[in-house]
């Protein structure tokens, strides 16, 4: 069975440690990930801005990259959800439309794959810190990933999970929105970080590096010491230190 990593352009370029954590965690469970190098970006930045021709150009690299995969796993709920728009994008291109439907049915966000497909909730990690969790919008609302990360976190030894007030509110990233509507986005991330501070958590964990990049950027701007991690990184660190 071929399980392929859809790294996402952001993790590839800025957060490769997230990909490394996924590869090592899954390898420890006997799943050797494959990485098709022709993949680039899912096309979400141009899709959300209304440039669909440009989106198709990027999306074709993803469709080609994973043609022969049985499972595709990604560290982002948002980029995973973007795949669900492919059938609509390629409705007039039959050969790509077939690939789009197939890719949609076999692509999973990281915790979905661990919990729903593999049936793993206890990865054998220990992480003795106070942690709060930000559920990213696209993963939690549009893909319905709500219980999976909580199940994984609840099985981590020593981890104290503290609820984040207004957790379901968007962090203000929204892709080009953060640049185009910088002040509105800035107000949103400022409020998100206010709530994170209220929890007094040492670590903020999430499932989407774009949102975490946004939040981490504001934390750093304000000189806050909260550590920001993708859940894959947290679990991998929790397994490694044992």
């Amino acid at each position: 069975m071929k399980v392929s990593l859809f790294i996402t352009c952001l993790s590839d370029a800025i957060y490769p440690k997230v990909g490394e954590a996924m590869v090592r965690l899954l390898a420890a469970h006997g799943i050797q990930l494959d990485f098709p190098p022709v993949q680039t970006c899912c096309g979400q930045p141009s899709y959300n801005s209304g440039y669909w021709d440009e989106t198709r150009t990027a999306a074709r690299t993803i469709l080609k990259a994973f043609q022969s995969s049985d499972f595709v796993v990604s560290p982002s709920g948002s980029c995973t959800y973007m795949i669900h728009h492919y059938p609509e994008l390629f409705k007039d291109e039959p050969e790509y439309l077939a690939l789009a439907h197939e890719l949609e049915s076999k692509t999973y966000e990281f915790t979905q794959f661990l919990v729903k497909v593999l049936g793993i909730t206890d990865i054998g990690a220990a992480f003795p810190y106070k942690v709060t969790y930000h559920p990213s919008c696209h993963g939690s609302r549009l893909l319905g990933i709500k219980d999976e990360p909580i199940a994984l976190l609840n099985h981590v030894q020593g981890l104290e999970l503290v609820p984040l007030p207004f957790a379901e509110d968007c962090c203000g990233f929204g892709g080009t929105f953060a640049v185009k509507m910088a002040d509105i986005s800035g107000a949103m991330v400022t409020e998100k970080v206010d709530h994170i501070k209220e929890t007094e958590a040492e670590v903020l964990v999430g499932l989407d590096m774009a949102c975490l990049m946004n939040i981490a950027g504001n934390l750093r701007h304000r000189g806050e010491q909260v550590r920001v991690m993708h859940l894959a990184e947290l679990l991998y660190e929790g397994v490694s230190v044992r």
């Binding site: 590839d12 490769p16 640049v179 910088a182 002040d183």
Partner: peptide
């Protein structure tokens, strides 16, 4: 400008994931 009024931007990693892949996959 807009981004950094409220945040500090991250930098590109020293080695992208794809640059690390060969070594990582051989190791696992």
């Amino acid at each position: 400008k807009g981004w950094n009024t409220y945040r500090v931007a991250p930098t590109l990693a020293n080695h992208s994931f794809r640059d690390q892949w060969k070594e990582l996959s051989a190791e696992t």
